[in-house]
């Protein structure tokens, strides 16, 4: 078997693992939080049970909803799946990669959000309208940070494909460009918290409609559509985990098992770190969230400055 075929098989295997393992991440976060609260907490596999339960149910629709409300959950699941397809597995570039796909990556996230927001507006509920408005406001700022991180990556690696840019860093490159990469990872981490509605931006646990962002937009969803929403939320977290992990992971030896171990450890480590953050931090007031994202943008721009000063040639 040629190396090319093997890599393709490994990449596909990772894709299947991603689809199956993504619902573990919320389970891990909740276990960590339960540990801090001195509780037993729900099972790590709880989301799987919830998804199975929801798939068996039928959906309830309000009279004001239209077609978008019914289709949006599946549409936004599709956008997250497409985002996953553009990402590398550990240090194996995606076979679907093409130059400029990083822009597609950002706007796939935007499309998914647009669908959710439109569906929320269709319910004509005050809560969902507020949630939609907040979602747009914060993700607009997060998108800028995301684009700055991608620009820095291109500057560092001279590679215009997303998975190319994420996989082309060598261990030697890590030593020269490592500081910049840490800056980019920090900025991306904050974007991840915002995009995935985690504390301190949003609180996925809250029952208070007036403070919700993402949860407010899905108050009217039920049954399989709600399952699709929960599943795509978990998958989106996985997507950002892959992004962060591959950003931090230098190419040791393509396809080696050690690389995959570190890769998965980083993804699950991110889930643990989210759990820790949610346990020790209070949520910000909404007026502070733009400041947080502006801070993330500043960090990403610092990364760009570092790369511009010290250059980014150390890639394969």
């Amino acid at each position: 078997m040629s190396e090319h075929t093997l890599n393709f098989i490994l990449w596909c295997a990772n894709l299947i693992i991603s689809l199956l393992a993504a619902p573990l991440l919320p389970g891990i976060i909740n276990k960590v939080k339960a540990f801090y609260a001195g509780r037993k907490g729900p099972r790590v596999l709880q989301l799987y049970y919830d998804l199975a339960k929801l798939m068996k149910k039928s959906s309830v629709y309000s009279t004001s909803r239209g077609l978008i409300f019914e289709l949006a959950p599946w549409g936004s699941l599709a956008t997250v799946l497409l985002m996953l397809l553009l990402l590398p597995a550990a240090c194996l570039a995606s076979p679907l990669a093409f130059p400029g796909d990083m822009i597609l990556f950002v706007y796939l996230a935007g499309c998914g959000r647009m669908l959710t927001v439109l569906a929320a507006m269709e319910t004509a509920s005050a809560f969902e309208g507020m949630g939609a408005s907040r979602e747009c406001q914060f993700s607009m700022l997060a998108e800028g940070v995301m684009l700055a991180v991608l620009a820095a990556l291109v500057l560092l690696t001279r590679n215009f494909t997303l998975s190319g840019a994420l996989t082309s860093l060598t261990p030697a490159g890590w030593f020269s460009g490592g500081t910049a990469i840490l800056f980019l990872a920090a900025a991306l981490y904050i974007v991840m918290l915002c995009e995935n509605c985690r504390v301190p931006v949003d609180d996925p646990e809250t029952h208070l409609e007036l403070t919700m962002i993402h949860e407010a937009m899905i108050l009217d969803n039920s049954g399989p559509e709600l399952a699709a929403i929960h599943y795509s939320a978990a998958l989106k977290l996985w997507v950002f985990g892959v992004f962060l992990a591959t950003l931090l992971l230098p190419d040791l030896a393509a396809g080696s098992w050690l690389e995959f171990v570190i890769f998965y450890a980083l993804i699950f480590g991110m889930a643990v770190s989210i759990g820790v953050i949610e346990s020790v931090m209070a949520r910000y007031r909404f007026l502070k969230v733009p400041q947080l994202l502006a801070g993330a943008l500043a960090v990403a721009l610092l990364g760009i400055v570092l790369i511009a000063i010290f250059g980014g040639g150390f890639v394969k």
């Binding site: 939080k33 801090y36 504390v199 646990e205 949610e278 020790v280």
Partner: peptide
């Protein structure tokens, strides 16, 4: 305010 420990 999602401050877990004190709440629990």
């Amino acid at each position: 305010v999602a401050f877990l420990t004190t709440s629990a």
